[in-house]
Design a protein around this nucleic acid. Structure first.
Lengths: 240, 240
DNA sequence: TTAACGGATGAATCTTGGC
DNA sequence: GGCCAAGATTCATCCGTTA
């Protein structure tokens, strides 16, 4: 397994479950991650198709390296989430916050997985993407959701009162991954974590969480399965 | 059972399930309602307390008549929702939209109930209340959620592209019910319904939906269990 | 420095036609 | 008839470039 370390940052190129099981108990202070949603796709083949065709409009010019692990059905996706969330729970110190991205379709299943893994669910923080695709005669899918939870009772990382909704545009020029989250959004979410803590991210993707952690002086442990995204993220994070 | 009718408005003072079962199949064009959430208590006694003490800070001066039917545990609440949502499904014409308010805690259970009752889930529309109570060191609970769904395939009531998020402050001076929704919010949501249609609301409460329906020229069928709220709503709606 | 314009995009959805 | 692949569609929003 490939492993890189620089400053407070540790990166692993490998499967999240395999890497997590090798990590010691109670060694991180927060979990913030954006797992594959495995949503979209009505038929089995559509669901197992390349996410670029599941989630992107045909004719879109932008292309990204393929995304791995986005082809599960809802039952196995929930079971899989519960397992990695359980590992995260073990690895997190008491009082740690957990923040997980999800879309509307998987929100109920993700809340089951979070609670099933032992976390105490604290709420939903919607993220307004602003420029979602329009739909005639329907409400558009304009938000994604951050489920937040804690291990035991939340150890406050700040005395500030944080918003319950973030509005932050997706800037496609800054995206390196089909589903890259804006670094500014992650930076805001990090406000709930201790300033001297270590943040765990088992699905590093394009590395937005790692970048925000370095900028905010948090330690970071990132895991990514795809070698291509691992290389991209490593360079992005190292450069900060 | 008390029943009032004026213009396109029909009001029932009675239990939602009882009234719904007497209604004919396929007789309304949309369902928009704000049921009791039955959330907000950890212990059984706290859960079964009067909602005015469950959902309000101590020391709040404003008092509302007691709210009925808000003392179920989550399992029975889900089952109960599935039953009345199933009745709504029967009463709705093919292609009708359904919009149900819920809070974050009950969102997963409500999505189960909606789908279990036969509705096709189409998404979540967050409502940003703007002025939620701040919480030190945590994300505040700033949003409630509208689950929306349809019977069969949605019959479009408009060609417009509707937003996926509504931001609308709660003006407590205008509230007649502890959980009154702003009329302006309801008016926006009604945009998805046919302009000549009838809207069903089995939990009329303070009557916001009825008022918005009259303003927007929609027919309205409202049901309310509490005689006190029934009287208040009837007068508010009649005056429009 | 600010304002206006043009172009591209979206963690989809729906319709149509083929196998 | 059922399943599946491919193509068409929508406009608020954001950014870069020009006025």
């Amino acid at each position: 397994m490939i492993r890189d370390q620089f400053g407070d940052v540790t990166l692993y190129n490998g499967d999240a479950l395999a890497v997590l099981s090798d990590m010691p108990d109670e060694s991180v202070d927060a979990v913030l991650t954006d797992p594959p949603y495995s949503s979209g796709g009505v038929t089995i083949t559509a669901r197992q198709a390349d996410p670029a065709s599941k989630y992107q409009k045909s004719g879109t010019m932008r292309r990204y390296p393929p995304m791995l692990g986005d082809a599960k059905d809802q039952r196995s996706w929930t079971a899989w989430c519960m397992i990695w969330l359980g590992q995260c729970w073990r690895v997190a110190r008491d009082g740690s916050p957990l923040m997980v991205f999800t879309d509307w379709r998987q929100l109920p299943a993700m809340s089951d997985a979070v609670q099933g893994a032992g976390w105490k669910w604290l709420g939903i923080v919607p993220w307004d993407k602003r420029n979602a695709r329009p739909q005639i005669g329907k409400f558009r899918q304009q938000c994604e959701y951050v489920l937040y939870a804690c291990k035991g009772s939340l150890l406050l990382g700040t005395r500030a009162c944080l918003p319950g909704l973030y509005s932050c545009p997706v800037v496609s020029a800054q995206k390196v991954h089909l589903t890259s989250k804006p670094v500014s959004l992650i930076r805001e979410l990090l406000a709930i974590t201790r300033s001297d803590g270590i943040v765990l991210d088992p699905f590093m993707g394009g590395g937005s969480v790692g970048i925000a952690c370095r900028e905010a002086g948090r330690g970071y442990v990132g895991i990514e399965l795809s070698p291509e995204y691992y290389a991209i993220s490593r360079e992005r994070i190292r450069k900060i």
